[in-house]
Nucleic acid binder design. Structure first.
Lengths: 352, 352
DNA sequence: AGTTTCTGCACCATCGATTGTGCAAGCGAA
DNA sequence: TTCGCTTGCACAATCGATGGTGCAGAAACT
């Protein structure tokens, strides 16, 4: 009875021990026993035995029978980033509070990997899939659709399922404006002194770049065409973009719009080894919030996407009866330099 | 045939279509068909049909039968932190390269939650569990042991299973030394000017604190008893510790040893709203690495734990036949201020 | 021709839980 | 006493894949 590594108890074991049938045991243990008119005392007996023998449901068996698993998937581009990891943290909280089990995986922004990952999750009969920042949301949709899996896009929109995304245009507008206004009237920013680094050809980048251009034009009167240096979502490519810029012009712009914290890491790589004074006059706007990024030696204005609101909205939508795909915008928030905001961790129990 | 949301094809469907038995189909699809002496041509037929009908294995069914799932679990304290999220990123790479599916979940440093989480994962018949930074590793061990689940501790050691952890003592020694040496001989640091913030009563904190004391004593000749302000792993408690300290002494210490990046966020919260000049002379050592943290306006010396080495070692150990529990130390690395290091993301394909 | 050895596959029990259905015993009413 | 209803549960099919075993027919050998 107390041997190490004993087999786990099953409903059949409890059935023998209790003298009831497996189906009765099953009903008692999964809570449907009142509906099946099982006597209270029978239920108590079985529950007692279950406790005693440390019974736990084999969720694979249940999943096989019910053809759902109780697993809820979150597919991220990458883990190693405060934006996405706070997404994971928030997501977990929601899933847990629904009594399900979160499964967080990353797919490296690779369309092929994204589809494979979705397929794997489907093979485990996950109940729902939240697709965050996918490079090819519609490709993933295809896979989910075939399997009849409820899914929703977050952060980057698709055309075939609901999407909940940051209001990138407004966010970028606010950010560009804040960067420009940061310079006083005595020495105002010139249009050719503000550059955008990062981004690629995705919806978020396009919106941000459009807002960047429009706001520059509106506030600075002009907007030279070369104001944007695409460099994907890679620190190293961004580093090279900065190096190329620097080589070419002999200096950095006075002000930068950086498309994401990942690109911001490219700026850090550029800064490493160069004198701090080189950057003392710099003003940076970054479309993402990172508490440490907010305290760099130069002013960094950041945009915090409202992760909590996005996840909440996504959970609402995913449960609703399906309608024509729609994209929901969630307003992000402008964060002044030197701000240390609370995050999902702050809701955890504090233990000193 | 092309209806939306058709049921997924099973081996039975393919069995009918191909005229072979389900077991033959199964063998062909899971690759054991040569061992079962299935004719090449039969196999090809079935593979062709599988392709045609987009067959994918129902992994819950397989898992039920084989009583393993192909899932490998990683249990983190929290997601929203560069140390743990880089752990997740690295872990994923390893699991994927073994053809299994990573499942990353967090358990909030709550012993109860840790055990529940382990139990849930066990109910899904995960194959292995990597337990990172658990508050009660031995409690989790108990649960795993009962289920015969292979598991290993990372970051915080347990006494009942192998552990792979950072060499906290050496790391803290290096860090303390680097902080002290940062001050020149003309205005050397006094013992009562260096304080440690953060940490609680766990193995890592104890080791670090011990090394902190020892190194202070060795290099500064003395070590007043009140040099340590425990504040758990919570930004807010750390904030309050700084506020209390400041209230009491009217200033911050000249030098700080901060126990983790989470505690470091407490310092950020303290900085927010206070003038930057207040911190211009500060020297900080932080036991954790965060690229943005490395570029704060004052020198921040960081310790980077070798996540890749830890995970690699853990994978080696978890596959080995079990022996008496042993703790393996992995040397961390001292990172000079203003360093932007490569991380797990840099191994991904760069797409501009 | 008779016997042994391969080939190539089918059969069937099994993993553990779920759920539609059936049915006996008990009870009240007619 | 008989009919009908309720109570309390057991039976058995099912989810999809796996793998041990057995067996017919062909090939090889004596």
């Amino acid at each position: 009875m107390d041997q190490r590594v004993k087999k786990k108890a099953t409903i059949y074991d409890l059935s023998v021990l209790s003298g009831s049938s497996p189906s009765t045991v099953s009903a008692v243990l999964n809570g449907t026993w009142r509906k099946r008119r099982i006597k209270e005392s029978t239920a108590q007996t079985i529950l007692g035995l279950a406790e005693l023998h440390q019974y736990t449901t084999n969720l694979q068996a249940r999943g096989l029978r019910r053809s759902r698993s109780g697993l809820v998937g979150l597919m991220l581009p990458v883990h190693d980033n405060r934006y996405f990891s706070s997404m994971a943290q928030t997501f977990e909280g929601h899933v847990r509070s629904r009594g399900q089990c979160p499964v967080v995986v990353s797919a490296s922004r690779d369309p092929e990997e994204e589809r494979r990952t979705a397929e794997t999750l489907i093979s485990y009969s996950i109940d729902q899939l939240f697709i965050v920042g996918a490079t090819d949301p519609d490709g993933v949709h295809e896979v989910c659709e075939l399997a009849g899996l409820r899914h929703i896009n977050i952060d980057l929109p698709g055309t075939k399922a609901h999407s909940v995304i940051s209001d990138n245009y407004q966010g970028a507008r606010m950010l560009t404006e804040a960067i420009i206004r940061r310079f006083g009237n005595d020495d105002p920013l010139r249009p050719d002194e503000l550059f955008l680094f990062g981004g690629r050809n995705d919806h978020a980048s396009r919106e941000r770049i459009a807002a960047f251009h429009a706001t520059k034009k509106a506030l600075l009167g002009a907007d030279p065409d070369d104001g944007v240096q695409s460099s994907g979502y890679s620190p190293d490519i961004t580093l090279r973009a900065f190096e190329a810029f620097y080589q070419c012009r002999g200096k950095l712009p006075r002000a930068l719009f950086i498309n994401s914290s990942i690109n911001m890491e490219g700026l850090l790589r550029f800064m490493a080894g160069r004198p701090a004074e080189m950057f003392s006059e710099l003003v940076v706007g970054c479309y993402d919030y990172d508490p440490f990024g907010s305290f760099l030696p130069f002013p960094v204005i950041m945009v915090r996407q409202n992760v909590e609101a996005m996840i909440t909205k996504a959970f609402e939508l995913i449960d609703e009866p399906p309608t024509a795909p729609h994209t929901f915008l969630i307003a992000p928030e402008l964060i002044q330099p030197r701000s240390a905001l609370k995050g999902p961790l702050d809701t955890l129990k504090d233990i000193a």
